[in-house]
Design a protein around this nucleic acid. Structure first.
Length: 246
DNA sequence: AATATATTCAACCGCTGGCAC
DNA sequence: CGTGCCAGCGGTTGAATATAT
């Protein structure tokens, strides 16, 4: 498919916004809203592309944006949600009123990731984001695949730290990580992970996957479910996905 | 005080999914 | 069903600022 250019390159301004531009954008959106971002700059008289306007508004000018440093509670929330969701910044941002995905992403990369690296910089736990990424790829292909290449959703299946045993990456020694840290996943979440409705149904039927608990969550790893069954599920699932444990 | 290095964060880029036709 | 457009997302960049030497 041929994609239209994001914006006309000719005559459109880039780089930092001036207070005047901000004011024009604010005034326009207050008056007319932002139905069509692409058309907005032209109608508002801004020499910016729609994308730039949208970003400026959502990340900086929106009236409901909370300014100032993140509170310890907010940081804790980000860490917890990132453990469950991976780099789904917009989803994380939805749980933090007044914070933008861009802001959360920046805080994660500048503060929280660093902090976690220190926290997990013990001999046993060194692997969590702490480790050198090149080493990680070379020495721990499976681990790296699950964290990075499978996409952010895969992170939801990865424990917050990794032991030297690949199998324990999946279930934890007692399977406790899964029962304690399951994300509040909806159907779309699981569909994304499994790739298709069919696959979801197939795997679900085979392994008891997809049955919902009374709380509306998918009851994959119920307390009643034997750990062996759980492990088998992941073995099959990962093999079907072409991912093999080392 | 001057320079080098590290850190921060606003903004950009390219890709993807949803929707209309 | 295929195509094109659009909004939104996440990764990345680079200028500004802070800190170290």
């Amino acid at each position: 498919m041929v994609r239209a250019p994001c914006c006309e390159k000719m005559g459109l301004k880039k780089g930092p916004w001036t207070p005047e531009e901000d004011q024009i954008l604010i005034n326009y959106i207050n008056l007319y809203g932002h139905g069509n971002w692409r058309a907005l700059p032209k109608q508002a008289g801004l020499l910016r592309c729609g994308k730039s306007c949208r970003l400026r508004w959502t990340n900086y000018l929106r009236p409901d944006i909370k300014r100032g440093n993140f509170t310890p509670e907010e940081e804790e929330t980000i860490i917890n949600l990132h453990e469950m969701l991976g780099n789904r910044w917009s989803t994380i941002a939805a749980r933090l009123p007044g914070r933008t995905d861009n802001e959360i992403k920046n805080v994660w990369h500048t503060h929280l990731k660093k902090r976690l690296r220190q926290k997990y910089a013990t001999p046993q736990l060194r692997n969590y984001p702490a480790m050198n990424e090149e080493q990680s790829i070379a020495q721990e292909p499976f681990k790296y695949t699950t964290y990075e290449s499978m996409g952010s959703s895969a992170l939801a299946f990865s424990p917050p730290h990794c032991s030297s045993e690949s199998s324990s990456n999946i279930t934890g020694e007692n399977g406790e990580w899964w029962t304690n840290n399951l994300p509040e996943a909806d159907e779309n979440f699981w569909r994304e992970v499994l790739g298709s409705d069919q696959q979801m149904a197939t795997v679900g039927n085979q392994q008891g996957f997809g049955s919902q608990t009374s709380e509306g969550q998918f009851g994959i790893f119920t307390k009643e479910q034997p750990i062996q069954e759980t492990t088998d599920f992941w073995t099959i699932f990962l093999q079907e996905e072409g991912i093999y444990l080392s």
